[in-house]
Design a protein around this nucleic acid. Sequence first.
DNA 1: ACCCAGGGTCGTC
DNA 2: GACGACCCTGGG
Length: 292
Amino acid sequence: MKIQEEKNKVIVENLKDFEPKHIFECGQCFRWNKEEDHSYTGVVMGKILNIKKENNVVHFNNTNLQEFHTIWYHYFDLERDYTKIKNELRKIDDYLKNAVEFGEGIRILQQDPWETLISFIISANNNIPRIKRGIEKICKNYGEEIGEFRGKKYYSFPTIKKMNRLSEENLRGCETGFRALYIKDTTFILSSDEEYIYKFKNLNTDMCKKELLQFSGVGPKVADCIMLFSMGKYDVFPVDVWVKKVMEEFYLKEEMSLNKIREYGIHKFGMLSGFAQQYLFYYARELGIGKK
DNA sequence: ACCCAGGGTCGTC
DNA sequence: GACGACCCTGGG
């Protein structure tokens, strides 16, 4: 890996296991959007970043070397050896081998727990375009304007304090539907101690999940996603309709409850469950596996 | 026009 | 544990 700094950008050569399309379209994040030049632009920690990969060179645009080391290196989970993880998963069977091959450039982002919590509450019984629109409206209406990139304005995700001032109607106005009340209740609980949610990653997986399940709008699936995408818990196996389909198709050969499938996944994949889930989810959703 | 599904959760039984 | 309701859009 070779890192160079240029004017308002950082260029990284030979960055292993890093494919923007796989990272941003595997369903873990909702605020990254594809540009006309096939790069991706997103907002993280109140900063606008643009990522473009060509010829095995990754361009981190609209940033500098200092931010690369203090923010992006951690956010993109660059300290982790995904080659090793993929080799372990490939050994399991041909299904995993194919899924890993298909999403070979996936990395599980280290996202913000607060933003991830609200985002996945919105995700319940919802479709991805609408989830993205809802989050974007919340940011545009109630976040801070943080700057412009390629002629477009960008907004940060609202703080807990700001969100706590919103009414149910304000939130419904952001296309969140019946989830507005869940967001309001959850935000109210967090507003008494804004650091509370940031301490969860220090808990073990079981305790962490127990804490998360207390929030309204957070059930087993949403809790697993929050832990996997923002709290560094990898011994979780979020089961949604896609993972259900792909697991029934590949392994179970019969209908099974979500909870049974989750237990099966964790038993089968152990400490790598979260990674296996992401490769399988991306594979299933992109190929429409199990679609009638 | 109509119906079903969507990265599920909640309340009730 | 099983069941229906839930706000509202996308897609057939």
